[in-house]
């Protein structure tokens, strides 16, 4: 809800994303901080921020598909993989510029996602989730079993660096700006999508698909669209990932990675773009902490070896998902919204 004194007098004003002056200031400050980050922070933090921005693009896509349109999607990592492979094959074989490979990666992932979204015409609920798991397995099968000259098989593909007008995007700082620009465009786009006609159709289908159908929404097309958009975001994120890591292999896109993305939107809060960003920040931070602390613990309990990082990550993330579903299924954004409305109407109770 808006603070007192803010009364939208036109439809345009009512649709605004940035509603108050303080929100505008906060957004501007945040962007300035992000732009200045490479000069303020050390390389390690920039590396983590790079990872966060890429995850943010993918998690926002999942948020649109799962949080807004209500379609459980456990194949987001496979869609990301399709994008990453498309970008790396195009970049290494044809030498296309990243200005083209990144959108093309998005489109190819969107096509792949759309194929699975089409099954929504026949099935719904968690049956649909099962087809997305099948997407995961079929992606792995395709990469590992198609001739290795196509997709590198189990060896993976090495990706040439992104290049623009002879300027090479190598090193964390250069890639930081590339990721920042792409992520900002994608996230701004997401805000646009969810308040458009499509976004309202998504929410209607999520809340009750039978009722939405009766009101004249093409339910199957809306669900397929949700998958298409979610997969497009995953593909773009995958392309950024390919340029950041400079190597793609099939192990980077497993069911576990898909579940990590689901964990991000559950923690942040379903049905909120900002929630997805909050979730990305928290989950990636937890992963970073475990990756830093893990090896020290591994030294003291030696029989586990390097697997403690993976194992600990699974225990904590699995625990976090279960805990949030039991205690706060609406996520942290819901808590924040309660807090926000209480300070906005203070000192009145409602």
């Amino acid at each position: 809800m808006d603070p007192s004194g803010i009364f939208p007098t036109s439809y345009r004003a009512d649709r605004r994303v940035v509603r108050t002056r303080w929100q505008a200031i906060a957004l501007a400050l945040f962007m300035v901080l992000m732009l200045a980050a490479p000069y303020l922070a050390s390389g390690r933090i920039i590396a983590v921020l790079n990872m966060m921005m890429i995850s943010a693009v993918i998690a926002v896509g999942l948020q649109i598909c799962t949080g807004y349109a209500g379609q459980i999607n456990l194949g987001q990592a496979a869609f990301m993989g399709v994008g990453a492979y498309t970008a790396s094959i195009l970049a290494s074989k044809t030498g296309l510029t990243f200005l083209l490979t990144i959108p093309l990666a998005g489109f190819s992932a969107a096509l792949f996602g759309f194929l699975f979204g089409l099954t929504a015409a026949r099935i719904k609920g968690f049956y649909l989730a099962l087809t997305t798991i099948a997407a995961q397995f079929i992606f792995h099968f395709a990469v590992l079993n198609l001739p290795s000259t196509w997709m590198g098989g189990s060896n993976g593909i090495t990706v040439p660096p992104a290049e623009l007008f002879g300027l090479r995007f190598v090193g964390e700082t250069a890639q930081f700006y590339m990721n920042l620009v792409v992520a900002s465009i994608m996230i701004a786009g997401a805000f646009g999508i969810v308040r458009s006609r499509f976004g309202r159709a998504f929410v209607a289908v999520r809340d009750d698909d039978v009722a939405a159908g009766i009101m004249g929404i093409n339910v199957a097309a809306t669900k397929a669209n949700a998958f298409l958009i979610g997969a497009f975001y995953a593909g773009v994120g995958g392309a950024l990932w390919a340029y950041l890591i400079r190597f793609v292999g099939v192990d980077q896109f497993t069911l576990f990675n898909s579940i990590f993305f689901v964990a991000m939107i559950i923690v942040g809060g379903m049905g909120s773009i900002v929630g997805a960003l909050v979730g990305v920040f928290i989950i990636r931070l937890i992963q970073e902490i475990i990756a830093t602390v893990g090896p020290n613990i591994a030294d003291s309990v030696s029989f586990l070896g390097g697997d403690i990082v993976f194992a600990g990550m699974n225990v904590i993330l699995g625990g976090v998902i279960a805990l949030f579903m039991i205690l706060e299924p609406k996520g942290l954004m819901h808590r924040w919204n309660i807090l926000k409305s209480s300070y906005r109407i203070w000192p009145f109770p409602y």
Binding site: I72, I259, V262, G305, D307, A311, G318, A322, M325, I326
Partner: peptide, 30 residues
């Protein structure tokens, strides 16, 4: 979770999937 949406229940078992896998790894190692 009794009475909650099917979505919550399915998501809890998805959480269990990685939680139990991690626990088995922690308890018994690879």
């Amino acid at each position: 979770l009794i009475g909650e949406s099917v979505f919550s229940m399915v998501m809890v078992t998805v959480g269990l999937l990685i939680l139990l896998r991690g626990l088995v790894l922690l308890l018994f190692g690879p």
